[in-house]
Amino acid sequence: MEALLTTAFLTALVTGAVTAGIPLLLAGLGEQMSEKAGVLNVGIEGMMLAGAFAGFFAAYMSESIALGFLAGALGGFGVALLMALLCVRLGLNQIVIGIGLTLGFEGITALLHYNLFGRSYPRLPAVETLRIPGLADIPVLGPAFFDRPLIVYVAVLLVFVVSFVYRRTNLGLYLQAAGDKPAALDVTGIDVVRIRTFAVLTAGTLAGLGGAFLSEVGAGLFVPFMTNGAGFIGIVLAMLARGRPFWVLAGAAIFGACLSLTTALQVAGVNVPTDVIQMIPFAAVMAVLIIFGRNAHLPAALGIPYVRGAR
């Protein structure tokens, strides 16, 4: 038990929680925007995988983490383009296409990895951090929150930006209308398909960034299937948060914290079944978001393709 009370261990746990939460936050924010506009984006997992591979590949080849993140975002954007084309433009079933994209990119990224890195398994060096003077010196919390890679601060900042967009801008209204009453938006002269396309592409970009975070910061390498369901957890967070970006942040933070708690309990030697301990993150996120987020709502036209004039 004394292992739990050292600064080094507590710092590692809190740092690990933040690292585990950031990809979920990015994926969840993206999914939320897509859902707000009426597109149930089940392909988020595939977009994350594409971002993870593209990000790792670019960072490894160029030795630049920043280029890696750019490539990761583009990777997710590329998969989202397919989603936008097939689901928003052509009106195909969003769930089927989403699952198809996820399975497809699981295979494509595994194949690319097999051919390019299958025998060498290259690893990236530790990512440089941006230290916030003063705050970074706070014991335990300082290194975990204020001595992190730039992308961590950007991800948290995005919550404020997205929240501002939803509450204070016309774009936020258009997104809301595209998901709730697309026909009403259409009669005002706003192109519903364009708004939904924008939402899906943004979702892909954010998911790609989340994937790149996983491979560049989280693991420092790429292995096939490495998202391990993170995209689907992002979808759950977005659905439970129901349109509120700060609830996605809360969900991701709770999930990350509970993951670290599971490690702490195991290292402390708490003798309960591992399955029970590992249920904690999922149970905690659902409990908190169901209790506090139940008054929010899902868009009325979620998952329904928009066809002008259709009844």
Partner: peptide, 8 residues
């Protein structure tokens, strides 16, 4: 396949 989890 959770390499990030393995590292964490």
């Amino acid at each position: 396949a959770d390499a990030a989890g393995g590292k964490r």
